[in-house]
Design a protein around this nucleic acid. Sequence first.
DNA 1: TATTATACGGAGGGTCCCTCCGTTTAGCAA
DNA 2: TTGCTAAACGGAGGGACCCTCCGTATAATA
Lengths: 203, 203
Amino acid sequence: MSRQHSVIEGPAVGGEPEVEGRPMRADARRNNERLVAAAREVFAREGGGASMDAIARQAGVGVGTLYRHFPTRMDVVQAVYCTDVDTLVHTAEEAVADLEPWPAVVAFLEAFVRYAQGKRTFLNELREAFDKNPELRLDMLERVEGSMQLVIGRAQGAGVVRTDVSGQDVMQLVGPMCTNATLSEEQSMRLLNMILDGLRKPS
Amino acid sequence: MSRQHSVIEGPAVGGEPEVEGRPMRADARRNNERLVAAAREVFAREGGGASMDAIARQAGVGVGTLYRHFPTRMDVVQAVYCTDVDTLVHTAEEAVADLEPWPAVVAFLEAFVRYAQGKRTFLNELREAFDKNPELRLDMLERVEGSMQLVIGRAQGAGVVRTDVSGQDVMQLVGPMCTNATLSEEQSMRLLNMILDGLRKPS
DNA sequence: TATTATACGGAGGGTCCCTCCGTTTAGCAA
DNA sequence: TTGCTAAACGGAGGGACCCTCCGTATAATA
């Protein structure tokens, strides 16, 4: 068990190695961030089967370093996934803080579609990680649902989104849609627009 | 492209290498059958990640032989899957030929549950094969649906199964149920009994 | 029985995941 | 600033796996 998956050991966010002892050395923290970013890039470019060597090379470090930060291939997948969820949650918070209720819904759902589509490149790997660690799935699902509900609920409160659907409903609708491998960026945006029209409360 | 996947080149059944030229040599045919059986056993025992060496060893042949029959790991998965479907289709035909309409439904659905549960051991591999070869999925789906409809339709005609559901409906209900990883043999049989009760026409 | 097209076996090439350990360096105390 | 030490780094290499190649064995045929 490495210290890196704080996610599965507690409620902390993923990928950020805040150990209880002294803080990480500056180079270690820098490399940790680099590695996650590199992994995301390589997965996107080469698919879920990308090799550990390729990830280390992309990050400009040796494989030893990669393995010290993430003891297992699956830990890399988890870390990338967790930071993706972090980003999504952050997007929701920002949207709620900066935008009017309806534009916030639009912005968040667009981000959600991008997020869900990004998962397609390493869906198999993710499924494997979930199989081996069901808690991870539940944790992440909960966080994503929370964000969705935050944005949708606020818009419902403001009277601009119909109240007979929940954030969870929307997720169940949009998520699987994006998982479909044969779905173009453009197609998904058209469908999203349709969904948004259906979601908006007729004035 | 090897000659083995007749499935993806035409309507022939899977796993049976009936080439257009002269028939296979006796030893080759024997080994082909052995290999598929061995693969099924090893996948069941060791999971979808089982190695090619293990399969060849189980079949009592060299890996070279395995690779001549199935050029790729995925071809082995396909072959096992296709013969499973063959068996299921055969079960349906036998049930219709030998049993009364209702017992045929019971027998076939029990076989279907066993079939679907057997897929769980190498679900990931199967998904990969389907991704790379969507035609295979459609072909197999069609054959399974055909069998289901054969058995259910006959029972509907005989007035022992309610007519407001189709064979496809039943498949969509039972298939996903079995795919669930956390489902005991016993649990699935209890659920199946419940489904059968719901399916039977009240007399 | 002799011939030959066909099939077989398994060593080994290439890749991948991961480990181990000698080398380097960040952070701190004097 | 300088030394010291715990922490982090790099990459060779072990072991497993997929697949290829080719010399050997054998079924089918004449």
